[in-house]
Design a protein around this nucleic acid. Structure first.
Lengths: 340, 340
DNA sequence: TTAGTCTACTAAATCGATTTAAACTCGCAA
DNA sequence: TTGCGAGTTTAAATCGATTTAGTAGACTAA
């Protein structure tokens, strides 16, 4: 239990300088001669001094804190984005407050309040379904940049945005199944209210319509994107008179659940039916049959988002960046047809 | 882009009171009459006031910030702990800085420095392998509590600790395989340097010795606990003259990899060989064969750790809590024998 | 009437770093 | 000798909330 660390003022006394000099020297001000700068910096090092962010932030209004809010960091996609974000921002000396809103707007609202209280400098967010700009107003009001990641708010084009081309993801998956001869295909999983789900439905429906198949709402089996729900949704649709043979799944977990459900009805994925996931987790490769899936680039999105954030902080007046990453289909066994 | 929020001083002027009164009223001091308290609180609400944590923290030395550092939040186990932690601490008005150290002590060290700079109040950590108390010294020196979660530092018994009974986990898994008649069993995955790995080796070796089998180092197939490495490790051991028939895996991912590897050699898990994982992810249930696994309670550990942290902050002098959760074996198909 | 006791409130110092305007020190030119 | 300007350093104000010692006023007790 040692003593409290010295303050700049105490360092100043030891060195016979003024506190102002210490502060300026520490931040490499050209006002200070290089001699005293060095003197100060070596004295600082051996003193055990630690910079007090509360004090600095009070004075300057800059906190070097940003917030990150996702609905579920236990989804590998979000976890890997978060890792990339933390790594890149940490290297730039920025600390990350985390919030797992679980699709609950009030959790995000509480987080936003705390960000304001701490004078955070920005927010990276995948907003919950049906949220409006209202929730983010306290940030906007103070000029704190908001950067959408993965999901965004339709119409809010003034904010930066780093997302996947979600329509393209389901479009490619659907097209693959159509090429393999499937005519009755469904989209499994997801719920309305997020741009991700909406775009995926759009991409899916456009793909089947391009193949001359009529879109109808019951081709989207809405459910939470988890394994058990995917299985349940697929089971329910197998009772239809003319059940589908192709399944585009909202993520890999839903695909695993779907494949299991199909098998309980004696339908073998890759043989009797085709299944495609979105994700690209390690398990997708290991499952039997291995899962055809659309890669969703979490680490890349995270890195670009962190970079966008740093740019925004450095140059607040830059026009908003809207970055959309094209997803890539990885063909394995679960969809049937040639692999690779 | 509205104005900056009002300060307590400004509220005070509007109400014809002193700033001191505002501050005291906001924090329900008994010094203030309930009339003025109410007056202040309603005025605050409609004013758009936001509490400035930098200022408060500068004065009081309390920041309402804690740090959480794990090696890999993309592991479901850690992600779910983190969710539980954030939820419970958030509800108590505490904000969470996150760090993903990736087993790199210098990443943790940098994080520790930033915690000190922000005057964080505690750290929840799973330390990287081979780390000593040295890295945490800057916190200790300032009396900031450290709470170990999942992993801990051997010998540091003054700190709180919330962990799984790791020896028991591998012990139970091994015992199951032994009961089913396997005599040549191995532990797949994990690397020396963490208490988790060491305890798991201990539990495993004690279990097989109790069954009259001699322990030797080559019964532990060290590797990073990911799917591909598990597969590789298992493949390599299958070339031994008298290959094992039982596999206790460091986590579910390693088990998936192991099962796939075994199958490439024509060995069917649950029939020819027995495989047990540790985790209890959704995928474990969905895999074929379904995975026998030891549940590792991430949400529970997270909740208890958050609770321990709050207690520690409220009563710094409480004797350290050392909480160990007993894991539970869930028997499914992959180990062979009766299920359930 | 005076002293004593509460209750409710306030003045002013404080936390530590940053910033601005002012001051000081040179050397050099007029 | 005086003045000027460039180069360094500093005094003092500032950010906003908290806290302590203390004041003012109302009331009771003697």
């Amino acid at each position: 239990m040692d003593r409290k660390p010295p303050t700049q003022k105490q360092i100043a006394e030891r060195l016979g300088l003024s506190p102002a000099t210490i502060s300026l020297a520490l931040r490499d001000s050209p006002m200070i001669s290089s001699e005293t700068r060095k003197l100060v910096q070596t004295a600082i090092k051996k003193s055990g001094y630690v910079h007090n962010f509360a004090a600095a932030s009070l004075r300057t209004g800059r906190s070097r804190i940003v917030g990150v809010s996702f609905h579920n960091i236990a989804h590998q996609f979000f976890a890997e984005m978060l890792i990339a974000i933390e790594e890149n921002l940490g290297a730039a000396g920025i600390s990350v407050f985390i919030n797992n809103h679980g699709e609950d707007p009030s959790s995000l609202a509480r987080f936003v309040d705390s960000l304001v209280s701490y004078g955070a400098e920005a927010l990276l967010v995948s907003p919950p379904p049906h949220v409006t700009g209202e929730v983010l107003a306290p940030l906007r009001g103070r000029g704190m940049p908001v950067i959408y990641i993965s999901r965004h708010l339709r119409g809010d084009d003034d904010a930066d945005r780093v997302i996947n081309a979600d329509a393209m993801a389901t479009g490619r998956a659907a097209s693959r199944l159509l090429e393999l001869g499937h005519r009755r295909i469904v989209l499994v999983g997801g719920q309305p209210g997020t741009t991700v789900a909406e775009d995926r439905v759009t991409g899916f429906s456009e793909a089947i319509e391009a193949a001359g198949i009529a879109w109808s709402d019951d081709l989207w089996l809405q459910c939470r994107p988890i394994l058990a729900e995917g299985a349940k949704a697929v089971l329910s649709v197998l009772d239809r008179s003319d059940p589908p043979t192709g399944f585009v799944c909202f993520n890999d977990l839903v695909a695993f659940g779907s494949m299991n459900a199909l098998r309980t009805r004696g339908l073998e994925p890759g043989v009797d039916v085709g299944v495609v996931g979105i994700g690209g987790t390690d398990e997708a490769m290991a499952f039997h049959p291995s899962l055809t899936t659309v890669l969703d680039n979490p680490a890349k999105i995270g890195r670009i988002a962190a970079d966008t954030l740093l740019t925004r902080l450095a140059e607040p007046e830059t026009p908003p960046r809207h970055i959309t990453l094209a997803p890539k289909l990885v063909v394995r066994e679960s969809c049937g047809g040639p692999v690779g």
